[in-house]
Design a protein around this nucleic acid. Structure first.
Lengths: 119, 119
DNA sequence: TTGTTTATAAACCTTTCGGTTGATTAATAA
DNA sequence: TTATTAATCAACCGAAAGGTTTATAAACAA
């Protein structure tokens, strides 16, 4: 389970690009080589290679070796770590919106409580 | 449920920053004003205001009005949309990694010559 | 009215991102 | 050996991100 800032930065940033998300979607059906992954896109193979490096650095994918090929594999554990982070902050209290004024009144009373940071 | 590329870009990008994730974490405990949200950080309030705009544009948060204040509220639905996207691509087959060569053999059948033999 | 609080806008700077092209490495095939 | 295939490296470019400071707007309090 990651909760490290830099690791979350890298992972969320990696998913913030349609090409990389598309690569993830492809890999969810099984491993693929760079050439295979590059084929659907109109950008250069080098650009796709860079995208894969971004995903790899975020540890969302791993790579193996098969002769000249460097097959790319999804790392489902990292994806799960992201849903885990999100779930921890998804706020259940549905009434929070309605009781806004009351909440503000209360929390503005004293100096704002030092945020506890994500964990 | 969002699946729109631009919306996903914006949402994942918004989470790819420790300040913005920290803001989300804070908001998961209830709404807050810009000043309250800015207090824990060493950056300027203007910078925090920009971060909030990024979150707002990604529709991860919404804003209301309370006199001079512009309270920020979490939008749990958007967060859920992200976990939903991830879950759709989280690949269950655990054996995928082991059967790499077989998979490559199959998918490379028409594109490449003879793949490597079993290890 | 004047002043204070809350927040944004505008201009600017530096770093990073996503893309390109051309050269290079590594493994394999002939 | 030479050629082919698979992929990366390196240098470069324009656009966007994240920060700053200064100035402005909007609501309220006196």
């Amino acid at each position: 389970m990651i909760s490290d800032d830099a690791a979350l930065d890298a992972a969320f940033l990696a998913l913030a690009d349609p090409v990389r998300r598309s690569i993830i979607a492809r890999l969810s059906r099984g491993p693929a080589t760079v050439n295979e992954l590059a084929e659907p896109f109109e950008i250069s193979k080098q650009a796709v290679s860079k995208h894969i490096q971004v995903l790899e650095q975020a540890e969302l994918v791993t790579r193996t070796r098969d002769a000249q090929r460097r097959p790319v594999h999804l790392n489902p554990a990292r994806l799960e770590a992201l849903t885990s982070w999100i779930d921890q902050h998804r706020l259940v209290r549905e009434e929070q919106f309605r009781s806004l004024d009351a909440v503000l009144e209360t929390s503005a009373g004293q100096a704002a409580p030092k945020a506890k940071e994500e964990q």
